[in-house]
Design a protein around this nucleic acid. Structure first.
Length: 946
RNA sequence: GCGGGUAUGGCGAAAUUGGUAGACGCGCCAGACUUAGGAUCUGGAGCCGUGAGGCAUGGGGGUUCGAGUCCCUCUAUCCGCACCA
């Protein structure tokens, strides 16, 4: 029988589907194991060879665990709400629901081609009403809860109302937005609307007016992590700061737990560091300053309260509320000018000019509470509205930014720390002795911080305080393709949640998806939908892309439950994700949000573990090679001139490079990739603008149409991201069609360590292809099945069991590239023994099955088995075959290898030492001098020290 | 600027605990079978040297009988964060 990968794959895909062999149960007696992939966004471009890398790794592990007797939950779904589908809809007029469905079908087909063992009966899509019903439901829970800091737990909002009723908010220790103190009678005197506004400051999902990242081009606001380098991550459009009323999630309430519980999860150190940097905890103090001639106080946050006597000016964020209040008439003009300057700058300008110092003086003064010195109050861009209190005391002697500011505006600098004892200490190190600081003089910095914090508290002008860089997550999008909020506003503008039986609130159909210019969401155009008969109105914003992905892993546990997001039984059985595989790009966005939601649901008693993911594995990216062609920047003689690579100096600035579709290029991916006459013809058809262009190469200069047959235009191969615009995308379907799915899977693993990014090297896939054919040829000699029933030799058993040991060890540490190498080694060794014995091949097929599921299934059948190999047990290495009778030791003199010698495996170190000294070459090296010592490392080597 | 990672043949890489560096694969070279080879099989090869031997894991230093692996330092490169008071 000839090896035909396409036929085998077809046959087994159908069989798996028919027998539902990957369907799993929630009521198994087997131990559970949950292996999750980050579900894809189903874009129109389809999968490229980079996407399946993590999926293949998790599939191998899932199949392996299943064969070891675990009930393995290994699901897949689609993150199908979001901006790209909507952008596509705006461009084409096609409803995003339709294009999304098409894309999902295509993705599903591409995934099936690769032979994954997903339980598709559990597929979820975030844009499916059955799914987003529960996204809306969780939002309602967030709205209906507040965070009790004393208990470190979310609690129902009605409990808070009861508290307000009896004692106001004075003793409540809650995570909240800035709010005035209020006693019980004040609370009772409030109108319904006022009470609702007060509660808003405590809800975990709340509305507030805030400066948000507004993206004009996308017509929506974006969360901080949806912005890269001052422009939108999707599309690269400019982003500006703008005050708007928006929904937020109070993720900051969970900051401490999100930070703390990192110690309990198995994530890489760099991933944990990224998350804790994002959370950005700092320990400092809040301090209140009197403002000269005003009733109001200035509240600042500092980590260095000890430096108060070096504070020679104060700085407010330009957006700070006090600015308008305290600016003196003299300075009004200056301040207004500065505010105009700041307002006109985009986020990007601001980031690009971080080094530039700018600011303006308000004319007002704060008073140092310890010595009554007047301190001028300035405003400046470098102080951020959202961090701390949006105001600082500036200590130019001890802070680089304050220092630069003082120099620019000629403000005094008072040295307050003597660092002479610490020569290497930088300006920001907390080292040195206090000077010029009255009662702090002579103290060490650390000591002084403690002392001053005590003083502040004593004088009731401040106290020790924690601060986090992380902000509450903006949860509103002025877009169409997202979950509608289950919120209606009554005639007073008070928001109310829908009842559970009214969920899901379906996303209504719409023809015109374009965002409106005034910042209103597309849904606001549907006046019939917005205005309810009783005069109430609906919220028209939709939820952001991260809403569905913040909890999808829970829905897989019980995907079709109509009564709850997942049943108690399902949650109790599956608990949490044992292994989560995905890219590092979600380090701070998705991973933090989903940890937050999971913890919230834990507080409410739904989820049973503190953390959603026990272990996180980050796969690297697969890069593509793009082929570029040199073109002269300025046209010569009115036409473009294209140059062969060898005619161009590498760093010359006279040329630009244009991407060439990789299909047109010969020897793609090598250093000598080129366009021949054929490829060039295609390329010219592809680029009609250049049809009159000249081409220059070694063979001379010519028009494309008279290109000499022997000529070559060499192209420049460059490592780049796989993308449509570089025409270098490699579709897994094409690879599977040419080499087979098993070969594709093995090759992706063989490329290198999972965590590393690496280029797709099309040429070396042949090696894996050869392995597959050799594996097949071990069973079929000249197309005929030949398997011997003879017992195995000790040598054969040794090869097999050493291999099993190595491979199971390697799988456990996710070193799949070395697993593939081991398969090749085992096969080479068996081949050299001409081994075709059933007792060896049977475990070998099971060993390979997780990696190459199709060929393993086929060979399993040829071995005479009826069931699927994927339901068989994974082979175990038996110790008896791992033992050696002799061991070859390298023999070194002073660490240099001088030879080797065989010894019995059971010899102890004394015996080895004695035997070693008898060896001729050792005698020769020692030349009669007795050795100082002989070091014997059992199982490794023997070293003689002279 | 701050934080983290990486650096091994022509290439992708391996080396599990400090113990024979370069397994396995690509590419390359030679040979066999072939009308043919972009098929298959066999063999070769880190570098220098005819050879014995010497030199080799980004550079320099250290610890050790012994270092790709541990420590210090420098360089290159990738990733993340970036006015966070």
């Amino acid at each position: 029988m000839e090896f035909n990968s396409a036929a085998i794959e077809q046959k087994w895909k159908e069989s798996w589907e028919k027998h539902q062999i990957y369907k799993i149960s929630n009521s198994s007696v087997r131990p559970k194991y949950y292996i999750l992939d980050m579900f894809p966004y189903p874009s129109g471009a389809g999968l490229h060879v980079g996407h399946p890398l993590g999926y293949i790794a998790s599939d191998i592990y899932a199949r392996y665990k299943r064969m070891q007797g675990y009930e393995v939950l290994h699901p897949m779904g689609f993150d199908s709400f979001g901006l790209p589908a909507e952008q596509y809809a705006i461009q084409t007029g096609i409803h995003p629901g339709l294009s999304t469905n098409d894309n999902i079908k295509r993705y599903r087909q591409q995934l099936d081609n690769i032979g994954f063992s997903f339980d598709w009966s559990r597929q979820v899509s975030t844009s499916d009403p059955e799914f987003y019903k529960w996204t809306q439901w969780i939002f309602i829970q967030l709205f209906d809860n507040w965070y009790d800091l004393s208990k470190a737990k979310a609690r129902p909002i009605h409990e808070l109302e009861t508290l307000f009723e009896s004692e106001g908010n004075l003793k409540v220790n809650a995570a909240h937005s800035p709010i005035d103190p209020m006693d019980a009678s004040t609370w009772k005197s409030f109108s319904k609307k006022e009470q609702s506004d007060v509660l808003m400051n405590y809800r975990l999902a709340y509305r507030k007016e805030a400066f948000v990242n507004w993206c004009e081009a996308l017509g929506t606001v974006l969360a901080n992590d949806e912005i890269k380098d001052g422009v939108s991550e999707r599309g690269g459009h400019p982003v500006e700061r703008k005050p708007m009323t928006q929904w937020f999630l109070r993720i900051t309430a969970y900051a401490e737990r999100l930070l703390n519980d990192l110690k309990d999860v198995d994530f890489s150190d760099s991933m944990k560091i990224m998350q804790s940097n994002w959370i950005g905890k700092s320990i400092g103090a809040q301090m209140f300053f009197k403002i000269d001639g005003h009733d109001s106080h200035l509240e600042i946050y500092t980590t260095r309260a000890d430096t108060i006597f070096g504070a020679t000016f104060m700085v407010l964020a330009p957006e700070h509320d006090l600015v308008a209040k305290i600016t003196t008439p003299d300075q009004k003009h200056t301040i207004d000018d500065y505010l105009r300057f700041v307002g006109a700058r985009s986020e990007r300008d601001r980031m690009a000019e971080v080094k530039e110092v700018s600011g303006a003086f308000t004319g007002a003064y704060a008073i140092n509470p310890f010595n009554d010195t007047k301190i001028p109050i300035w405003i400046a861009e470098y102080v951020l509205k959202d961090y701390g209190t949006g105001a600082i005391m500036a200590v130019p002697a001890d802070d680089a930014r304050d220092h630069a500011f003082a120099l620019k505006f000629n403000l005094p600098i008072i040295e307050i720390i003597d660092k002479s004892m610490y020569p290497g200490a930088t300006i920001e190190d907390k080292l040195g002795k206090m000077i010029n600081s009255e009662f702090l003089n002579g103290m060490e910095v650390i000591e002084a911080i403690d002392h001053i914090n005590g003083r502040l508290e004593q004088m009731k002008i401040g106290k020790k305080q924690l601060n986090y860089k992380m902000r509450d997550a903006n949860y509103s999008r002025q877009r169409y393709w997202g979950e509608p909020f289950p919120i209606v506003y009554d005639l007073d503008g008070i928001p109310h949640t829908l009842n559970q039986h009214e969920l899901p609130l379906l996303l209504p159909d719409l023809d015109d998806f374009k965002p409106t210019a005034n910042g209103k969401a597309p849904l606001s155009k549907l006046t019939d939908w917005v205005h309810l008969p009783n005069g109430f109105t609906r919220e028209t914003d939709t939820m952001p892309g991260f809403a569905g992905s913040s909890w999808y892993f829970l829905r897989y546990m019980d995907p079709h439950n109509d009564h709850t997001f997942a049943s108690k039984a399902a949650l109790d059985y599956w608990q949490d994700v044992d292994l989560y595989v995905g890219g590092t790009e979600h380090a701070v966005g998705h991973l933090l949000y989903s940890r937050f939601w999971h913890k919230f649901l834990f507080d409410l008693g739904y989820t049973v573990t503190k953390e959603p993911y026990k272990r996180l594995l980050n796969q690297g990216k697969i890069q593509g090679i793009s082929e570029m062609i040199y073109v002269k920047k300025e046209k010569e003689a009115g036409r473009h001139i294209f140059f062969s690579k060898e005619l161009v100096e590498a760093d010359s600035k006279d040329y630009i490079t244009l991407p060439v579709p990789i299909d047109y290029v010969k020897d793609y991916g090598s250093m000598k990739s080129y366009l021949d006459a054929d490829g060039l013809k295609k390329y010219i058809l592809f680029l009609p603008d250049y049809k009159d262009a000249l081409f220059r190469c070694e063979a001379g200069e010519f028009l494309a149409s008279d290109f000499p047959l022997h000529g070559k235009i060499y192209t420049l191969g460059e490592l780049a991201k796989m993308s449509k615009s570089l025409y270098n995308v490699i579709n897994p379907d094409a690879v599977v069609a040419e080499y087979g799915a098993d070969c594709f899977r093995l090759f992706e693993m063989f490329l290198g360590p999972l965590e590393q990014s690496k280029p797709w090297d099309t040429r070396s896939i042949d090696g894996v292809g050869k392995f597959i054919r050799r594996l097949w040829a071990t069973f079929f000699i000249n197309g005929l099945l030949e398997i011997s029933d003879e017992p195995a030799s000790p040598e054969e058993l040794k090869i097999l069991h050493k291999g099993i040991k190595r491979i199971t060890d390697d799988i456990e540490r996710f070193s799949f590239n070395t697993c593939v190498s081991q398969f090749m080694i085992i096969l080479n060794e068996l081949k050299s023994l001409n081994c075709n014995k059933r007792v060896i091949l049977d475990p070998l097929v099971r060993l390979i099955a997780p990696f190459a599921p199709f060929i393993a299934e086929e060979l399993w059948q040829h071995l005479g088995h009826l069931g699927s190999v994927h339901l068989a047990t994974y082979p175990k290495a038996e110790d008896q075959y791992l033992l050696e009778s002799t061991i070859t030791y390298p023999i070194c003199v002073n660490g240099k290898k001088r030879g080797t010698s065989d010894y019995p495996a059971d010899a102890d170190s004394k015996a080895l030492e004695a035997m070693t000294m008898q060896l001729d070459f050792v005698q020769k090296w020692l030349e009669g001098t007795p050795p100082k010592k002989v070091i014997v490392v059992i199982g490794k080597m023997i070293n003689i020290v002279v």
